[in-house]
Computed example of a mutant assay.
Amino acid sequence: MLQEALREINRGSAEIIDNERIEKLLKAYFEEGKTYTVKAGFDPTAPDLHLGHTVLLQKLATFQKYGATVQFLIGDFTATIGDPTGKSATRKVLSQEDIKKNIASYTTQAFKILDESKTEIVYNNDWLEPLGALGMLELASTLTVARMLERDDFSKRYASNAPIAVSEFMYPLLQGYDSVYLKSDIEIGGTDQKFNLLMGRQLQKTYDIKKQQAVLMMPILEGLDGVQKMSKSLNNYVGVADEPNDMFGKILSISDDLMWRFYLLLSTKPLDEIAAIKNGVLDGSMHPKKVKEDLAIEITARYHSQELAHAAKAEFDKIHSKSQVPTEIDEYNCDGEIWIAQALVDCNIEPSTSQARRDIKQGAVKINQEKISDMQLQLACGEYILQVGKRKFAKLKVN
């Protein structure tokens, strides 16, 4: 059982620091029933989570399965500074209203994965605000500027004369102090968080709390393009709050290579089962499309339900395999003749008329399931089913 737990905890991880400590904690759980704490911090800088965020959440759920209490840390204090990791400029400060709204959204979505009975939601404002000026100065004195400038993102900004706010230097120290206050046994985060995660180990030693947390780092999940990290700003994401049809369709759109990455980091199937599936694809006994559909159903069902996941598959097959129109599409009206590019914008399936013209030129626009090529087409009175690509539909009635 211990080896199985270690295998699942190591699954997909990019780097583990002090694996021996993790093994000791697990051994104490299996032999003596002792629980331990695993911390992960989330700054509520946006209201919604995407599948990239859930890589950490699923690893936390794995720890819960093997005796851990998760310290789900909401960085309501540190969010007012903003994590400088990977940033080329100082982040905009969030308002308290935005932070509270984002916190509510985060926790609702997180408990679709985590066991609420084994989760402690903690807010670092509870101990960082009372720290006061004297405590902050004491904390700041534990690290030199030279050591801080060893961080890759800080060193690049310093070399290019890009401004670095002094408050940003405090962020890693505050994150590290969270581990001091919480006495965390393990902290997990992305590979881009290594400096901050190690700060927790260092400060636990500095403040002499009689332990140093182990650190587990997970890789950054690539987005739908398979190249850049999953991000809302890059529009290559699958949101936890996406509608079932959108979620299913997006996952089915990923490449066959990226599919295995998703299986490793997002599926709850055992590693041996995934290996058997992969061998089945390699020897031709399983079709990659069917394997991808199973993954899309699994993930969609996790955030919605089995019923809605299978309904999403049926809808996808209806549209793509049988070239039919979706069961439910938005309906719009307009008075008088309308230019096709403007109609696509007014029906919210194109962001601009220039993009509409490009898509018409590339053959991505259909009217009543027939491709069009006339960029100057005027739609007279009647009803039309407008379509862009495979997933965007609207019904337009021209009066």
Results as ranks from 00 to 15, higher is better:
Y181V: 14
L143T: 15
K183Y: 01
L143Y: 07
K183Q: 08
S141T: 12
T191V: 13
L182K: 00
G135H: 02
S167M: 10
L137I: 14
Q175N: 12
D153L: 03
S184P: 06
R151Y: 13
E187R: 00
Y177V: 02
Y181C: 06
V166A: 14
M136P: 06
R151C: 08
L139R: 07
L143P: 00
K194A: 13
Y171S: 02
E138I: 07
D153S: 04
D152A: 10
Y171L: 05
S141I: 06
S179G: 11
Q175D: 11
L137M: 15
F169D: 02
F154G: 09
R157Q: 07
S167G: 05
D153T: 09
G189W: 02
S167I: 08
L182S: 00
G176E: 00
G176W: 00
K183E: 06
T191N: 09
G135D: 04
D192C: 09
F154Y: 15
E168K: 10
P172Y: 02
L149Y: 08
Q193T: 04
A140N: 12
K183I: 01
V166M: 15
T144A: 11
Q193L: 11
P172T: 02
R147A: 09
E168C: 10
A165R: 13
Y181W: 12
G190W: 04
T191W: 09
E168S: 08
P163Q: 11
Y181I: 14
T191S: 15
E150K: 08
F169M: 07
A159L: 09
D178V: 00
M170G: 08
G135L: 01
K156A: 13
D152E: 15
Q193C: 02
A146W: 02
E187V: 00
G189D: 03
G176Q: 00
A146V: 06
P172D: 03
V145M: 11
M170S: 08
L149M: 14
P163S: 13
E138Y: 10
V145W: 01
D152M: 03
Y177F: 14
S184D: 03
A162Q: 15
L137D: 06
A146P: 05
D153V: 05
R151E: 12
P163T: 12
S179F: 06
G189M: 04
L137V: 10
D178L: 01
M136S: 08
Y158M: 14
S179P: 09
D153A: 02
Q193G: 04
M136T: 13
L143C: 12
G176C: 00
Y177S: 07
S179M: 11
A146K: 13
S141K: 15
E187N: 00
K156G: 04
I186Y: 05
E150Q: 12
Y171D: 07
A159P: 04
T191M: 10
G189L: 05
A162K: 14
Q193S: 05
M148T: 14
K183W: 01
G190Q: 08
K194D: 11
S184I: 03
Y171V: 02
G189A: 11
Y171K: 01
A140H: 04
Y177P: 04
Y158P: 07
Q175K: 12
R151K: 14
M136N: 12
V180S: 01
E150A: 03
D153Q: 05
Q193Y: 05
S155Q: 14
D178A: 01
T191K: 08
M136R: 10
V166T: 15
A140C: 11
V145F: 05
S167K: 13
E168R: 09
T142I: 10
D152H: 07
R147S: 03
